[in-house]
Design a protein around this nucleic acid. Structure first.
Length: 266
DNA sequence: CAACCTGTTCGCCA
DNA sequence: ATGGCGAACAGGTT
């Protein structure tokens, strides 16, 4: 489920436990999501610590602690953050549980495609400093998008939009939404996009990210009316703009949905 | 029962 | 070396 705005939504779930001491740390017996991490050290460091800040970048979440440490959580395909009671038993898919006096902060992920990162100390980890420009920052310019499309020249635009090095936070439904709103057919190779199309792509990417954060960032699955979002899941839907039957195909290994009339093939 | 899935990474091949 | 593609990962849902 989680793309840009949904990741932001889940990050906020843990705000309830901000500044409260962590009394106990539970981790999943399988270390898959902790790959490359010294798990006992993480448990030691976070026991007694407090979350003092948190933020997201694309699909990546960051939590800062005092004593100084940074926890990174990626939700993968099926992860979520939630609040449970202070004595809630650890669920089968709960990979990290931070106990507090009044509640538990839970990271659950049934399909185990998520990832946990951790670094003790005040220094920023390289998995934070090495990130590309966020879509809603001034550095995410039309020129940046042009360069991304040049680099991914022969790739279908739908697949390129899923590249987190260039479009951090964009996932499958957002990519379909962007192309639909920009009127670009998803198979189009990046290098064949015209200057006006590239401009529309940049504009739509920013607008949809902003709107998503305003709406979905507060309440899950509450995308604006009239968006493709509401009809793209199942086959047989019609274009919310023109009413034409939507098309579906696999592009770059993922399901794509588009309107053949609003997004004509060249 | 088989197919499908809102993500990422790896290995293969051109 | 580089770009692009398909498979793999694992469990739940349709």
């Amino acid at each position: 489920m989680p793309e840009l705005a949904e990741v932001e939504y889940f990050r906020r779930q843990w705000d309830a436990g901000k500044n409260a001491a962590i009394t106990e740390v539970l981790v999943h017996p399988k270390p898959k999501l902790f790959r490359g991490i010294d798990v006992p050290a993480l448990v030691r460091q976070l026991t007694g610590a407090r979350i003092v800040d948190s933020f997201t970048h694309g699909k990546q979440m960051f939590f800062r602690f005092r004593p100084a440490a940074t926890l990174g959580i990626h939700l993968g395909m099926t992860g979520d953050l939630s609040i449970a009671s202070a004595d809630a038993p650890q669920g089968r898919h709960d990979h990290l549980v931070l106990r507090q006096k009044a509640r538990s902060l839970v990271f659950s992920d049934s399909r185990m495609f998520g990832r946990i990162r951790f670094m003790a100390g005040a220094e920023k980890p390289e998995w934070e400093t090495g990130l590309p420009p966020g879509i809603l920052t001034p550095q995410f310019t039309a020129a940046f998008v042009d360069e991304a499309l040049r680099r991914r020249g022969g790739t279908p635009i739908k697949a390129a939009l899923l590249d987190q090095e260039f479009f951090p936070g964009i996932g499958n439904w957002m990519a379909d939404e962007i192309l639909w709103q920009a009127g670009i057919e998803p198979h189009r190779r990046c290098k064949t996009l015209t200057a006006p199309e590239r401009k529309r792509l940049h504009t739509a990417t920013r607008a949809i990210s902003k709107k998503s954060l305003e709406k979905i960032g507060k309440k899950l699955h509450d995308a604006p009316a009239k968006w493709l979002f509401h009809v793209r899941w199942r086959k047989g839907g019609d274009c919310p703009r023109c009413g034409a039957p939507l098309k579906h195909a696999t592009i770059g290994g993922r399901t794509a949905c588009w309107c053949p009339r609003c997004q004509p093939a060249k």
